[in-house]
């Protein structure tokens, strides 16, 4: 039987399937890459379904997508408590111990839902759901407040953005969420505001981003602050952009909050 390789997560799917069983990406849509090398994140079909562990995830809606997860026995996911849309009454919730999150201005409560049962999560902004299946030994950094849910096999921490200039002018806050897999795979769901684009940077290759547009990156990608020598206000100079240096993937969102300067 012919196998179809998903262009987003590289998983193999049996012939005849229309969406990837691992990430839900449509298998019958052409990959859209702009002249600048940015690839659109796959736009998941309404009701696309994919699986992880003994659980499944179904994505509903297309303007503000909802992830509806059917958790199998023994499986669990975690998420920021305010993204929970609904749940089966029988699904137990616990709180993950994440000391220090509130100090960084991040939600202090990360909630864990355990199967069996159903839960649904969504963020309240128009945008796209980004499904990132993580292979063993991967590290992904995510902009704060962009994380929607992750399977329990992914360990969660948050890292402080290095450099005072990065913190003060980077527009990405003080912390980034870091998701790491050890021996097994996992599933990470993000919400990008607007449309989401991804690009692979070669070793040493650099790219300047509006800091508010940064969504995720491989941990191997270095993020620094780059100052453009332009006037940005009546009395201020310097517009700060995020300088990303490869190797690795970077993801951006097209709707963002501009942090650069006063108008």
């Amino acid at each position: 039987m012919d196998l179809i390789v998903c262009s987003w997560c590289q998983s193999q799917n049996p012939g005849g399937t229309t969406s990837c069983d691992v990430c839900g990406a449509p298998l019958d849509d052409a990959v859209k890459v702009s002249d600048g090398g940015w690839r659109e994140a796959p736009r998941l079909h309404d009701m696309a379904e994919f699986s992880f562990g003994t659980s499944t995830c179904q994505v509903e809606g297309d303007v503000v997508p909802v992830a509806e997860l059917k958790l199998g026995q023994g499986d669990s996911i975690y998420f920021e408590h305010h993204v929970l849309l609904w749940k089966d009454e029988a699904v137990p919730l616990t709180v993950m111990n994440t000391p220090g999150r509130s100090l960084g201005g991040m939600p202090s409560v990360v909630t864990v839902a355990s199967g069996p049962g159903r839960v649904a999560v969504s963020r309240d902004a128009a945008g796209e759901m980004v499904v990132l299946p993580m292979h063993p030994s991967m590290e992904i950094d995510v902009r704060e407040h962009a994380f929607l849910a992750a399977s329990a096999s992914i360990s969660y921490s948050f890292v402080r953005i290095k450099g005072l200039a990065n913190v003060l002018h980077g527009g990405n806050g003080m912390y980034m969420d870091r998701f790491v897999t050890q021996g097994g795979p996992g599933l990470l769901l993000l919400h990008g505001n607007g449309n989401v684009f991804e690009r692979l940077l070669a070793p040493g290759e650099k790219m300047l981003l509006e800091p508010g547009a940064f969504l995720f990156k491989d941990a191997s990608v270095q993020m620094n602050t780059h100052q453009l020598p332009v006037k940005t206000g009546l009395l201020s100079r310097g517009m700060y952009l995020a300088e990303m240096t490869g190797p690795g993937r970077i993801g951006i969102q097209s709707m963002y909050v501009h942090h650069g300067s006063d108008d």
């Binding site: 859209k32 702009s34 002249d35 600048g36 940015w38 659109e40 736009r43 303007v63 128009a126 945008g127 796209e128 505001n193 607007g194 449309n195 684009f197 097209s254 709707m255």
Partner: peptide, 16 residues
């Protein structure tokens, strides 16, 4: 030059 529009909800204009 050329301009390429990508995205649907919040389109981005990529300009070469």
């Amino acid at each position: 030059s050329s301009c390429q529009i990508s995205g649907a909800y919040v389109p981005a204009a990529e300009i070469r």
